[in-house]
Design a protein around this nucleic acid. Structure first.
Length: 437
RNA sequence: UCCUGAGUAGCUCAAUGGCAGAGCAUCCGGCUGUUAACCGGAGGGUUGUAGGUUCGAGUCCUACCUCAGGAGCCA
């Protein structure tokens, strides 16, 4: 009998099949046993009736514990009470291994315990749903760029210097006489590949050694970063909203069951379509000012500073879809931003804030084209000039207007799944003080 | 790094300064349609660590450790 996956079980109704997996839970009712069996692709309920099996087989079930690995044979049929749901009448059981008492019991657990047992927590329904959405988001990301003329060009993870000079980086000893740093962004390299290939993107892990301790932060997260030659800020904002809508559509098409398990109200996602609201930093500052005066925001907003987390939450709460805030003061943004020709104190940049307090999911902008300006900015930011020689070369040899953005996969998944914390959006989250498992 | 809160059975949580308990998990028994199944029984504790106050501390005080939530910074 050939192995069948639970996700395909509908194709085998009335047939005898073999399922190889683990015992998710077992309920016994005297002469009846109900086994919830999972095989990674799904969960199915197996039923054994004492009168239908041999005494020896019946007693074999008594040793089973939660998460024991088993191979079962049975005949599939529809659930007597639930149309569209399938069950398995078990006719044989092979015990591969009896599991020791499983730590994650069918009751609630605290986050500390679950995090320290992340390697086991991965087996739960909820984690399955989230990580399936993550995989779908990643597929959508690749499909979107691959089918729109972008070329995937991976950028290095070991880098010689800080990309933006702002965040703290993980330092790595590089053969004793040099220091390397784990990349916090592939962006600068993207600019080189964009000059070579036009429309490019990079997708990979990113590292930030900031001691951030919030529901929106990981020290290792996955980021997708497109870079487009000859695109301006307006073009970038249009690309961003189309990109997000494409991802949403793909998840809504393919992950209905997962969103249901997560009890995510998908109606708020369904109504999201372009155009997304665009507000300037100045408009945002006015909104925050008014909010403070009316008591909706506790702390006053200081004009000229970056938006704080409560500020972002307030602004995003005023809209029913992601909102794009553009043209921040240049001094709170990275050194490579192109100045706004209308007001040189502002940068041609944009942050996309997700609804429901999920924070910034996209950050990007138009890149500076002038060699002299970049050199000046590098000095102002006290960055080591030697490390940026090659980057400055891009302005010497055919400088060109271009724009790009970065999107954090976990924040995007967290928003779509309605998660309280991004740590659930990645199989093994790396956080401040969390390196294990 | 700062602010706030929490550490009691494997897990989730109770316990006026006065006998350390329940549910789940484990083990034993019962139950022919269960759905975090249910019913009966059993075992399971250096109350985060170190001091202190007190006749008496899980409970009050001090320090430290760990974790959680928030801030800053960011995607």
């Amino acid at each position: 009998m050939e192995q069948v996956y639970i996700s395909d079980i509908g194709k085998y109704v009335g047939e005898e099949v073999t399922i190889k997996g683990w015992l998710y839970n077992i309920r016994s009712s005297g002469k009846l046993r109900f086994l919830e069996i999972r095989d990674g692709s799904g969960i199915i309920q197996g039923v054994v009736s004492k009168k239908d099996v041999s005494e020896e087989l019946w007693t074999r079930f008594e040793t089973l514990t939660q998460e024991s690995s088993i191979i079962v044979q049975g005949r599939t049929r529809e659930h007597p009470k639930r149309p569209g749901v399938f069950e398995l009448d078990i006719i044989n059981l092979q015990i591969v291994a009896v599991a020791e008492p499983y730590p994650i019991t069918p009751k609630e657990h605290g986050i500390e315990f679950l995090m320290s047992n992340r390697h086991l927590w991965l087996r739960s329904r909820r984690t399955h749903a989230i990580l399936r959405v993550r995989a779908q988001v990643i597929r959508a990301v690749r499909d979107f760029f691959d089918s729109n003329g972008f070329l995937l060009l991976d950028t290095p993870i070991l880098t010689p210097a800080a990309c933006e000079g702002t965040t703290t980086l993980f330092e790595v000893d590089y053969f004793g006489d040099a220091k390397a740093y784990l990349a916090q962004s592939g962006q600068l390299y993207n600019e080189a590949t964009a000059a070579a290939f036009g429309r490019v993107y990079t997708f990979g892990p990113t590292f930030r050694a900031e001691k951030s301790k919030t529901r929106r932060h990981l020290t290792e997260f996955w980021m997708v970063e497109p870079e487009i030659a000859y695109m301006d800020l307006d073009g970038l904002m249009e690309l961003s909203e189309n990109f997000i809508c494409y991802i949403l559509r793909r998840v809504l098409e393919n992950c209905r069951a997962e969103l249901e398990i997560l009890e995510r109200d998908s109606t708020s996602l369904e109504k999201i379509e372009p155009p997304f609201p665009r507000i300037s930093y100045d408009e945002a500052a006015r909104m925050l000012d008014d909010a403070h005066k009316s008591g909706a925001l506790e702390n006053p907003f200081e004009y000229g500073s970056d938006l704080g987390s409560p500020d972002e939450t307030y602004i995003s709460s005023q809209f029913d879809r992601p909102v794009m805030v553009h043209r921040y003061p240049a001094k709170v943004k990275a050194f490579y931003m192109e100045p706004d020709p209308q007001d040189s104190t502002k940068a041609l940049c944009v942050d996309m804030l997700a609804p429901e307090g999920c924070g910034e999911i996209i950050g990007g902008g138009q890149r500076a084209t002038s060699y002299d300006l970049l050199l000046q900015r590098i000095e102002e930011h006290n960055l080591p000039r030697e490390a940026f020689d090659w980057y400055l070369d891009l302005r010497r040899y055919g400088t060109f207007p271009h724009s790009g953005f970065g999107m954090g996969i976990e924040r995007c998944v967290g928003w779509i799944c309605g998660l309280e914390h991004v740590r659930e959006a990645i199989p093994f989250p790396r956080m401040l003080y969390h390196l294990k498992p």
